[in-house]
């Protein structure tokens, strides 16, 4: 069963991808390790691609929560893609 990469942030995926490439290039692996790394690297690349393609800026604003504290509420005055 292949490991799930879904929970990785872009940062984690990108750094792991760089490490994977370096490990592969350094050699010193069994063929099975090498193929497993390669397969994982390809999946990390695809994940990075799709994270970059599908990301949408998430904006909230800090507002008073009425009890002396603060909470984050959706900020709706601006939508991604909106121009001035």
């Amino acid at each position: 069963m292949t490991e799930s990469l879904q929970d990785l942030s872009f940062e984690e995926a990108f750094e792991q991808l760089q490490e994977t490439v370096q490990a592969l290039e350094a050699g010193d692996l069994t063929l099975a390790q090498s193929l497993a790394l390669f397969e994982r690297g390809v999946r990390l690349t695809n994940l990075c691609d799709s994270l970059l393609d599908n990301a949408e800026l998430h904006v909230r604003q800090v507002v008073a929560d009425g009890a002396g504290g603060f909470e984050a509420a959706p900020f709706t005055a601006w939508q991604p893609g909106e121009e001035l």
């Binding site: 942030s9 990301a55 800026l57 909230r60």
Partner: peptide, 14 residues
Amino acid sequence: LAVRYPLVDVLLAP
């Protein structure tokens, strides 16, 4: 931010 790196979470303190 949306163009360069929409992966961030933005918290506005107006």
